[in-house]
């Protein structure tokens, strides 16, 4: 079966013009594939570039080398070369992203953030309740919520209409054990529907419960020495 995602020779640098133009090389020659129903966990020490890789895959960071081929509408689209409109289209239909931080929009209540994903009020309510977000919070804008509450709104939004390819950046970072279990269940359900998932899971228990494979992201010095 053909891949949902094929990353080929991905490279990413940051040139800091305000710091004398120093260039930091973060990713070099990253290659892997992901198939339907599979969950790959990115591992590696802090600062190795896991989140950078994730942001490149989402199109939030531009890749400097290589290709990011995503199966979109039956064809492989290279996100590394796609223009802004194409990236938006891939994100809308194919590529979901749940980060650990919610970018709150002023005045928009939690439930409407979830409904904006294209689900009805009842479904949105059900998902928020499943993630243990009390009903009295549903009608409030999440700007004043705690970190864990905001993250659960974010998760509800991400899983309301799961895309075929999901990127999860520390989805359980500020959650307690009960809520972590809900997230593990949501991931299993998404995989059973054929979603491919790439995740950074700080919590080893969650990682072991959901990941089929580990993909180590190593700091560049280590890669070069090897």
């Amino acid at each position: 079966m053909s891949a949902l995602l094929a990353v080929e020779g991905l490279g990413k640098d940051f040139t800091l013009h305000l710091q004398g133009g120093v260039t930091l090389a973060v990713l070099r020659g990253v290659s892997f594939t992901l198939h339907a129903g599979e969950c790959v966990a990115l591992t590696g020490p802090s600062g190795a570039g896991k989140s950078t890789l994730m942001r490149c895959l989402q199109g939030n960071y531009g890749a400097d080398a290589g290709r990011i081929l995503v199966r979109h509408r039956g064809a492989m689209v290279d996100l590394a070369a796609a223009d802004a409109r194409a990236v938006r289209e891939v994100r809308a239909e194919t590529l979901g992203y749940v980060s650990q931080f919610l970018r709150a929009i002023p005045r928009v209540p939690a439930i409407e953030l979830v409904m904006a994903e294209g689900v009805g009020r009842e479904e949105a309510r059900g998902l928020l309740l499943r993630l243990n977000l009390p009903e009295r919070l549903h009608g409030l804008p999440p700007a004043t919520f705690s970190g864990g509450e905001q993250q659960r709104v974010n998760l509800a939004r991400g899983f309301a209409r799961p895309r075929p390819l999901m990127l999860l950046d520390e989805p359980t970072a500020s959650l307690d054990a009960a809520n972590r279990a809900v997230v593990v269940q949501l991931i299993h359900e998404a995989k059973a529907r054929g979603c491919g998932i790439i995740g950074i899971f700080h919590d080893a228990g969650v990682r072991d419960a959901v990941a089929d494979r580990l993909f180590p992201v190593l700091p560049l010095e280590a890669t070069e020495a090897a």
Partner: peptide
């Protein structure tokens, strides 16, 4: 892309 220009700015002036 709006989020890319703001999160991964390339030009010295954008940075």
């Amino acid at each position: 892309l709006a989020d890319r220009v703001l999160d991964d700015p390339r030009h010295p002036y954008t940075q």
